[in-house]
């Protein structure tokens, strides 16, 4: 149960990133929840995500991997330590700035897709752009382009319930890419789709990475984690090991 210190995290960033620049820096982060007693979800985690890197986080249920993702995604703030995203300490940002960060610098992909049930595919993809105050026409164009890229050019105006699980997850990926964010955070993105569809989803994430996105993937499946450049193993709220993945795997 070793805890990587700041230097080690920085070293990890150097090992991965071609430009030696961390988009996300997690420094000695602790996160505790008060659930009728203090529960420690993260206990001194440090990690850096270099620009354009692809990192998988693996660990058993309750290991703290989702908490780590929520902190980096600016959905939550740490009890102690620092989460720096795009040069800004998330905990120091006012609520509206955290919302802006989520909307423009981060794209989420969830296990359960999390699409707005009453909005058509194209509107779901355009949702981050609504909050970023894009014009209606620009939003529509951007969303159509992205949906075509994920192979749903013929499903633009379908509601989520009219789409298969795999199609929904592709809509979610298109939405994550809509505002052209720096970072894609994927939480078990293949957890609710079959193996073949899962492979398509992973291809889409790989394509995003090839276009320069920084990707953090949370999974408990080794097969999925192997798509990343490195695998961060988390156990009991701490990083146990950072394992590089051999190229070509």
């Amino acid at each position: 149960m070793s805890v990587t210190d700041g230097d080690a995290a920085a070293a990890g960033a150097r090992a991965d990133g071609p430009e030696d620049e961390a988009v996300v820096t997690v420094a000695d982060v602790h996160k505790e929840y008060d659930l009728g007693g203090t529960v420690t979800a993260l206990d001194g985690v440090s990690l850096a995500l270099a620009e354009g890197s692809y990192t998988a986080v693996m660990g058993p249920s309750g290991s703290g991997k989702s908490t780590l993702l929520n902190l980096i995604g600016a959905l939550d703030t740490p009890t102690a330590g620092e989460v720096i995203v795009d040069g800004e300490n998330v905990a120091d940002l006012p609520e509206r700035e955290r919302a802006r960060l989520r909307g423009t610098e981060i794209g989420f992909v969830f296990q359960t897709f999390n699409l707005m049930p009453r909005l058509a595919a194209v509107e779901n993809v355009a949702l981050p752009l609504v909050f970023a105050e894009w014009s209606r026409r620009e939003r529509r164009e951007r969303a159509e382009t992205l949906l075509s890229e994920v192979g749903l050019g013929d499903r633009l105006d379908h509601l989520p319930r009219e789409l298969s699980g795999g199609q929904r997850q592709r809509v979610a990926i298109a939405r994550a890419l809509a505002a052209d964010p720096e970072i894609i955070l994927a939480d078990e993105p293949t957890g609710n789709v079959d193996t073949d569809t899962g492979a398509e989803i992973m291809d889409l994430l790989a394509a995003a990475r090839d276009r320069g996105n920084t990707i953090l993937l949370v999974t408990h499946e080794r097969r999925i984690a192997d798509h990343a450049d490195r695998i961060v193993h988390v156990t009991d709220g701490a990083i146990e090991e950072i394992e590089p993945v051999e190229a070509g795997e």
Binding site: L75, R100, R102, G103, T104, L115, L127, F131, A132
Partner: peptide, 8 residues
Amino acid sequence: IMKATGAR
């Protein structure tokens, strides 16, 4: 979902 996609 709205908050995750940038809603204040």
